[in-house]
Amino acid sequence: MAMQFYASPEQIMRDRSEYARKGISRGRSVVVLTYEGGVLFVAENPSTALHKVSEIYDRIGFAAVGRYNEFENLRAAGVRMADLRGYSYDRRDVNARALANGYAQTLGAIFTEQSKPYEVEICVAQVGATPEGDELYRLTYDGSVGDEPGFIAMGGSAEAISTKLRQGHKHTATLAEALKLATEALGSVGGDGGKPRSLTASQLEVAVLDRRRPGRTFRRIRGAALAQLVAGQSGSAPEAEKEADKPATPADTPMTAGPATSIEPPLSEVDTQPPAAPKKRAPKPPAE
């Protein structure tokens, strides 16, 4: 007959925490920080198809580190929750706090009830009208949730990256300045013999929640626009920043009870992605 050994609850939780932490620290890091024009997500991610950073709703973004299948599952759940809420109430009734609560409850239940915890750490970010109004929530594998103003670093060596971010972060930074800080922070760890690495555009996944855009504010910065932003930080204002100068404010968002009356095309697609293809073929002037 098999003998059932006693393990104290403390021991079980400790083991699970250690297991989850180990899994998370193996992966590369993600940085989320606020800047003057919105919220910036920077992930060290060589893949262009498997995202660590994604859109949840109009003003809400998602970033994660750890096991892809697990955080992808949470991301899809978040999109469903946000879309359901927006559909049954109103688009303005979808907020990051409710989403963070849902995630916290879910992660917490998985941590205590299932034998294997999720090896993920996620960030839910909501862009406000001002940098002070931005909300960044960090959620860990055990369902703990924290509201961290300004910036969040997740993944392996998150402590060292956070220290670097704390020294340089300011709300008034431009997109280029914020991206420079983020890439330096990400590159400050993992180099040979503790030396800082210099990250190139192809190693980065970058996206922003653009404070000044009405409607869906999430856009990816990639391809030529990203290369320009990463490389020529002292040169001419890159495409991505020009867009940020658009005078639109959240107050311009039409308030209607019915269907959405205007949907902005994804301006981010200035690279080789499909939606941009006909634009290149068609240098036609638009209808007046």
Partner: peptide, 13 residues
Amino acid sequence: GFDSPGRLPAVFT
């Protein structure tokens, strides 16, 4: 699920 604070129901995940 979309207005209760509990764990997200299985249909979401």
